[in-house]
């Protein structure tokens, strides 16, 4: 689905992504792990068109999508969520979801005046869809709450809900579980699995919670210092020497070993 080839991203002298090469297979839930500062989010930002790449390529189903603006990637079915949940604070939760499907007739001035019927009909359809999504995420009771008032975890659900408003092909989830309690995390996990199975979404998930990763993801990719260290099943990656070293540092790794 997504093929990242020798991708670099520099901020001045700092090499945030340093020649990352990886594949995300169609239909998979790929986990992306790595210590803080490994370049995971930067990688997402480059893939999702928020930051330009310094060099390297991103292919989606064989097509070069490097540097395309976010709304065009959205059009191709590539969606993402943010590490710190984003929302349109001045709108209700339902309105937040209703913003999503692209190319709505109501977006042009012409239709606002002369296509009233069409716009209203479309809005009804999108509203029904939004209500469905809210029910799926078990947050129907928040539908008319202002999005700036809901909790951090609920915002994460809203982020996930946004990706469900359209038929996405691949969704990049940036720490969807951060700051979310266990129960809510399970809801999110269930939603991801269901979307993967029932609707064929491909996911790429950045996450620090290893239980969450172990439950959902296969394969898992580990990044450190802007490079891809290891790739494989959860257990393979977890036991990889280089991965342990990246997380714990060389000294600590030896200490852990000697203790064991």
């Amino acid at each position: 689905m997504i093929s990242v080839q020798n991708l670099h991203k520099k901020f001045g002298a700092f090499h945030a992504v340093d020649g990352a090469t990886l594949e995300i297979a169609t239909g998979s839930i790929t986990g992306l792990i790595g210590p803080n500062g490994a370049g995971k989010t930067t990688l997402f930002n480059v893939i999702a068109g928020r930051l330009p790449a310094s060099c390297g390529k991103v292919l989606m189903a064989g097509e070069d999508i490097t540097g395309l603006p976010p709304h065009e990637l959205f059009h191709k079915g590539l969606l993402r969520t943010f590490q710190i949940a984003h929302e349109f604070g001045s709108m209700t939760v339902r309105e937040n979801l209703m913003m999503v499907p692209e190319n709505q007739a109501g977006e042009t001035l012409w239709n606002t005046w002369f296509g009233r019927g069409r716009v209203a009909e479309e809005e009804r359809r999108i509203r029904d869809k939004a209500d469905e999504v809210l029910e799926f995420l078990t947050i129907t009771h928040l539908a008319d709450e202002k999005a700036s008032n809901i909790s951090g975890g609920q915002k994460k659900l809203l982020e996930l809900g946004r990706t469900m408003m359209v038929d996405a092909k691949i969704v990049f989830l940036d720490e969807v579980g951060a700051g979310v309690n266990r129960t809510l995390l399970n809801t999110i996990g269930d939603a991801i699995v269901r979307l993967n199975k029932e609707r064929g979404y491909t996911f790429c998930v950045i996450e620090h919670d290893m239980d969450f990763i172990a439950r959902l993801c296969d394969p898992v990719i580990c990044m450190a210092e802007g490079k891809v260290l290891a790739q494989g099943t959860v257990d393979e990656v977890k036991n990889d020497e280089r991965v342990i070293e990246a997380y714990l540092g060389t000294g600590l790794k030896n200490k852990v070993k000697s203790n064991a």
Binding site: P70, F74, M99
Partner: peptide
Amino acid sequence: TRTGKSMRAFSDNEDLALLSGIN
């Protein structure tokens, strides 16, 4: 109106507006 809402969305959070498919 839907047009007005997409303008408010854009003003609220440009990144998110772009990632929500608002043109």
